[in-house]
């Protein structure tokens, strides 16, 4: 029998990363402050998780300006979308599997 755990993605193991990916799945782009409000974490914590996801090429970063203030927005990549869907499916499998 196939083991569903193999599809659980280690990259998505933290609550913060799940939050980031969930928000980016349903929005074209989300900026840093909106993510911070949604997930309720500190700047540093959020930034480090965003960095991690960016390094896995699951999200894209756009640096822009609104007036003089920097406005950094994030969006999901094709690879990120695919990986996250697989992760959710794996979670669902796990639930069925253990029933």
């Amino acid at each position: 029998m196939k083991n569903p755990i193999e599809h659980l993605n280690k990259v998505f193991e933290s609550r913060v990363r799940l939050g980031i990916m969930s928000a980016l799945m349903v929005n074209e782009e989300v900026n840093f402050n909106e993510l911070k409000e949604l997930i309720q974490v500190t700047d540093g914590n959020l930034a480090s998780h965003l960095k991690g996801l960016e390094e896995s090429a699951y999200i894209k970063v756009h640096k822009g300006f609104i007036g003089r203030k920097t406005n950094t927005t994030y969006s999901i990549t094709k690879a990120g979308e695919k990986a996250f869907k697989l992760h959710i499916e794996a979670l669902e499998q796990m639930i069925k599997f253990t029933k």
Partner: peptide, 19 residues
């Protein structure tokens, strides 16, 4: 099992809250 279920619920909640 409940842990995974909670994770899925969190994901759903976050998707709704953000959109």
């Amino acid at each position: 099992q409940t842990q995974h279920l909670d994770t899925l619920k969190d994901i759903k909640k976050m998707m709704e809250r953000s959109s």
